[in-house]
Amino acid sequence: MSNDQYLMTNNLSDIINKPVRTDLVIATRYVNLFYGDFQALKGITLEIFPNTVTALIGPSGCGKSTYLRLFNRMNDLIDGVKITGNIIVDGEDIYAPETDVVELRRKVGMVFQKPNPFPKSIFENVAYGLRVNGVNDKKFIQAKVEQSLVRSALWDEVKDKLKKSAFELSGGQQQRLCIARALAVEPSVVLMDEPASALDPISTAKIEELIYELKKNYTIIIVTHNMQQAGRVSDTTAFFYLGELIEYGDTKEIFTNPKDKKTQNYITGRFG
């Protein structure tokens, strides 16, 4: 839905209750990624279903974060990266030369490991994505900011201090603000790179609750080091080891009955 269509409704509840597309497909086929001579991803083929939470697990350096960053082309920022294979988002190969990276990143939002709000007010943090995408309509931005903060379960805590600096929030609140910021541009996919690893248990619980809520409207891919977290929030789990995809399947299946020995060892805490 484009911005113009939103402008016609002008009604906040309409915007908040807007149905979200469910026809999205994410897939990678034989993806290899090299940092110079080092091969970080080895022939990864994977399909991710709409409105699910997919957890990427594996020991440090296994390539799970690198894999996550394929979907919004964040790896482009690193010098000397070479990628082969196909990465499909929404039926299109996002590494094709005609891809509009800005458009892609609007469609695929991202939440980072550490809360990283901008040095701006709470309101402006959420409005940022809209503003850089050329939205100027004040009412629309206002409605969108509120909707995103409601969706990220932060609205009640910040509605009276939207003009305050984002740095005044606690770490957990900042992370939910970052989620709201990602949601404001209406992505269909949200990538989360260990979103709770820098937070205390209570904030972590809130984020996990939120992920469960967001699943209804978004496709979520989450990198996590925390096995319990993966078990709690995800529908499917992919286990990476040394740049290879070892096992991918239903989370319950992987945690109770792993097919591969390495998966079993990792899940039971023998290494990692």
């Binding site: 920022l77 990143r105 901008f118 940022y128 850089v132 995408n133 990602a182 541009v185």
Partner: peptide
């Protein structure tokens, strides 16, 4: 991370 956050939101 702040630069990445901006780029990830579709900013050039």
């Amino acid at each position: 991370s702040m630069k990445e956050a901006s780029l990830a939101l579709g900013a050039n």
